[in-house]
């Protein structure tokens, strides 16, 4: 059974790759999206067949609730507000990675797993709040202008330092929940701080970047729960998202750092 699951993961990874390839050209894009959704279905079915699962009702409930919300949102959204919808979906994906990372903590052994848990919480958290802010700016729920204030760079630097410190402390003392909460809280705060100084017109680029991050978060969560397909699909999205972000910047005649740090100072921990 384990072997069948793993083989199914291989097939769905191939479908993701092929789907992404087809998405890059107008004639085949729709077919590509279809292929990658078949890959996702296959991966989910394979995961359900896994032996470790003894109880299905909570999974089913999650499917029903999530599927209903997702389908309704995708159908009802206006064509013109698609990008902010994507941002919102992306935020949920980031939050899911955060939760998976936090849940994996109960069975975590070894420093390597702890580090990947911290990464999935950190990247997932900043993706969540960052995407919410991007959604708010695009939908004009909050003002779309760049928010800047005196001492912003100092605050941002403190947040980054705080994240680093609490992440290290968490890896050293995983049994102390204070550090876990600190990492979660600070990463949520960091997502907000990173996106508010960027103007609404640049939001599509930011969403693309956050999309890349949510892939990386899924990848980190994959390391945390030892799951190959999460690592493969997550890093695919992470890498292709970064490239796409760069292409979008070029199309706007901007550089990525120009977009990101126009009002943000020089605080960056996520790239490379």
């Amino acid at each position: 059974m384990q072997l069948i699951t793993q083989l199914a993961y291989v097939v769905s990874a191939a479908l993701f790759i092929f789907g992404l390839k087809l998405l890059g050209s107008a004639a085949t894009a729709r077919k590509g999206n279809m292929l990658s959704s078949v890959g996702m279905l296959l991966a989910i079915v394979a995961a359900l067949l896994d032996q470790g699962i003894v109880e299905f009702q909570w999974i089913l409930l999650g499917f029903v609730v999530g599927g209903a919300i997702g389908a309704a949102a995708a159908r009802l959204v206006q064509m013109t507000s698609m990008p902010e919808m994507v941002a919102l979906f992306n935020g949920f994906g980031g939050m899911a990675s955060l939760l998976v990372g936090a849940a994996a903590l109960s069975t975590a052994t070894g420093t390597f797993t702890l580090v990947t848990i911290v990464l999935s919480i950190l990247i997932g958290g900043l993706t969540f709040t960052g995407s919410l802010i991007a959604w708010g700016k695009l939908s004009e729920t909050i003002g779309s202008g760049a928010v800047m204030f005196r001492g912003q760079q100092v605050v941002n630097s403190l947040v980054v330092l705080g994240i680093l410190a609490s992440a290290v402390m968490f890896c050293l003392q995983p049994e102390n929940p204070t550090w876990l909460y600190l990492v979660i809280g600070l990463s949520l705060l960091f997502g907000i701080m990173a996106v508010i100084p960027i103007g609404g017109a640049d939001m599509p680029v930011v969403i693309s970047l956050l999309n890349s991050y949510s892939g990386l978060a899924a990848c980190a969560a994959g390391f945390a729960v030892n799951n190959n397909i999460l690592i493969v699909a997550g890093s695919l999205v992470g890498a292709s998202g970064i490239i796409l972000t760069q292409i979008m910047c070029k199309a706007m005649n901007r550089s990525l750092s120009n977009v990101l740090f126009s009002g943000f100072g020089s605080v960056s921990t996520e790239e490379t």
Partner: peptide
Amino acid sequence: GANAISGITV
């Protein structure tokens, strides 16, 4: 489309 794939966390 890439964003949908990142939902693989499921």
